[in-house]
Nucleic acid binder design. Structure first.
Lengths: 226, 226
DNA sequence: CCATTCATACTGGTATGGTAGTATCCATTG
DNA sequence: CAATGGATACTACCATACCAGTATGAATGG
């Protein structure tokens, strides 16, 4: 866990927030881990203040729990919360898919979405798990932008962080990810042919699948849940 | 604008955040207003630090804009953003309405929702605008809770703050609010009879109406938009 | 009279010190 | 030996001081 403060990537507080968020999602900081302001201040080579602000931001996203005068810990995974989060994301993105059909997506957006699917396929052939997830994320983000609903992606942000954490447990190999590419293609096809019902249905199916492995991982790694 | 720090309502930062948020929504702090950390620190009788944390929280909700070394201002109303926000809220709450039909709502929840509608009617007869809005908010919140989707309400939180700001401009008299009660009743009826399609449709109609007056207020108060 | 420069008074971000509250552990006591 | 009391080492929160940028406006030069 090598922390580092870059010279020009926003304020120190925001950089720390990003790194801690990534570390939490990737389970580098597993649920239940105690987070000390002073400890991270030393590791990052800054004072406690920016660390504190980063932790407050993560607490707002409910990724960490701050108990005054008691301590700050990474929150455990809640199965109920995950199912709620998945449902909400499905609702929002189903609307995005419909809207994308109603407003004609531009050709540049079309090309971008195509390119992102291609990049996922390529990343998978290289066993580049991280690259796959980045492209996946951008696919959904660009679809929202193309539909004129950038706010939708921002709204999903915090929710998606929680979902990504369990996906990090379930999506560990290439064959588990393979189906997602086909689902993305189906979504894009429906959007381009402006078939709103098909687009919504494809999106809902896509976002229903992502938690299919939740029960097994919950049984295997019960220590991460609470 | 009388600010005050209560002894036991959370940390100073959170109290200040709540008060500032309320002042922004109620237009007491209109769009474009410059917010000075030091100024509020004096008014609240605290140091800059908690004020700063409050402003950061509001910036995260995009109610204020923080430009480092330049200043912090209340963000202007964006018509496009409002329409996106309304759409997203409709998507989420439509799902809540459906889910409320699928899971049987408990009798205590039923009574609570009934009571809240009654309280809205009562508040309206007293011309208690604020009381009406509180009951309205609780109706939606309790419906989400009854559906087992409390996270849905939290997710809507920041979005709703923006919508509430324009509603403060449009919903100024009792007769403008009167129809909302009937809409709530229709939603509740459909939920209790477990008619998911009717519940979703009623909710969508309800949340489509709230921005109907946007064009006229945008023309009348162009200075608030940007 | 207009353009440029530069001192000044802000801004938000960070560093550091102090305070009150909580958990832990060990000595003391029944 | 079990239970209780208190010292200690934490914690998050707040106050204060300092820093590095930015806008403003007055003074200066053309």
């Amino acid at each position: 866990m090598n922390f580092h403060i870059a010279p020009d990537t926003g304020s120190a507080a925001r950089q720390i927030e990003r790194q801690l968020r990534a570390s939490i999602i990737s389970m580098e900081l597993p649920p239940g881990t105690r987070l000390s302001e002073t400890e991270f201040a030393e590791k990052f080579g800054v004072s406690r203040q920016p660390v504190r602000e980063a932790l407050i931001a993560l607490a707002r996203a409910e990724l960490v729990s701050i108990l005054p005068q008691r301590g700050t810990t990474v929150v455990k995974i809640s199965a109920d919360r995950m199912m709620q989060a998945r449902f909400i994301r499905e609702q929002i993105e189903a609307g995005v898919a419909r809207r994308a059909c109603e407003v004609q997506v531009s050709t540049t957006d079309h090309q971008m979405l195509d390119e992102l699917i291609r990049r996922q396929d390529e990343a998978l052939s290289r066993d580049d798990i991280e690259g796959f997830k980045i492209a996946d994320e951008r696919f959904h983000q660009n679809l929202a932008r193309a539909a004129g609903l950038e706010l939708a992606w921002q709204t999903i942000g915090d929710i998606k962080a929680h979902l990504d954490r369990v996906c990090h447990l379930t999506l560990t190999n290439a064959q588990a990810m393979r189906p997602l590419i086909g689902q993305h293609q189906k979504i894009l096809e429906a959007v381009l042919s402006r078939d709103a019902d098909a687009a919504e249905q494809a999106m809902r199916f896509h976002l229903t699948e992502i938690l299919r492995a939740l029960p097994v991982v919950m049984a295997e790694r019960a220590d991460l849940f609470g």
